[in-house]
Design a protein around this nucleic acid. Sequence first.
DNA 1: AGCTCGACCTGCACGC
DNA 2: TGCGTGCAGGTCGAGC
Length: 293
Amino acid sequence: MPELPEVEIVSRGLARAMLGRRISGVKLNRLDLRFPLPQGFAARLEGRTVEAVGRRGKYIIASLSEGERLLMHLGMSGRFTIFPRHGKASSLGEFHFEESGGGIHDHVVFALDDGTRIVYTDPRRFGMMDLVPAAELASHRLMKGLGVEPLGRGLTPRYLACAFDGRIAPLKAALLDQRLVAGLGNIYVCEALFRSGLSPTRRAGTLVKDRKPDPRLRTLIKEIRSVLKRAITAGGSTLRDYAGTDGTSGAYQHRFSVYDRPGKPCVRRGCTGRVKRLIQSGRSTFYCPVCQR
DNA sequence: AGCTCGACCTGCACGC
DNA sequence: TGCGTGCAGGTCGAGC
């Protein structure tokens, strides 16, 4: 799935297509995504104007007229594709407008007043959508527990020291915990830890001394931001099914140092280690046991 | 409270 | 070719 960089790119793509547009119609092919779509979903969207599209963690939030907020998550395999009215230039290649949104996993289709269609496709249906009044967004059960934005001001060595203090969970697991930092996923945690020279198996609490941040936390934050920004610039990472809203693949997967490279030599200059794969809390971790400590 | 694991769902790559 | 197995970018909630 999409992690923060991929979600950010999708969010920008949606903003480009939807900003200032009125939703003229909504077609629901399936109501059962990760959670059932809320009552009256289509009717509550129709006629609303899109005033903003943004991201919080891995959630995309569209602000609609009359104070409605459309909350969306792509899960593992969710994807939005934008079909302009005269959709000939899309990188998806040739297609017919009438056929967009008719695929077996095309669950939701938004039609905009300028003829654009936006299709939500999600084979595994781990994604979700919900519609809530603006005033209730912050207290939404999926929003309220989210931690700081990794690219925002809130992520500081002091914050991480506070979050990690006393925790025996592996550093990898702590960074994947959306309640601490919102938006990191399996790929970019592996990559950021590699670049930081920190072992994913180290207990998170070992980077806190007397409630003060270990200097390596500053490096970790720097590398987290660096890897996320580079990935955004590269258009995200495409492993299987991620694509931007224009159907194009990302390119960051070609830049992985450790992710999905088990057995390959460590790319750090002078390091003789090989990338190792192990399972942590049910998910693959890739790292160099020699230079990550 | 913190942590791990199973469950959710489909598709694909692999080995036999 | 066909089938079984394991794996996949996430995260919620049960159970220890």
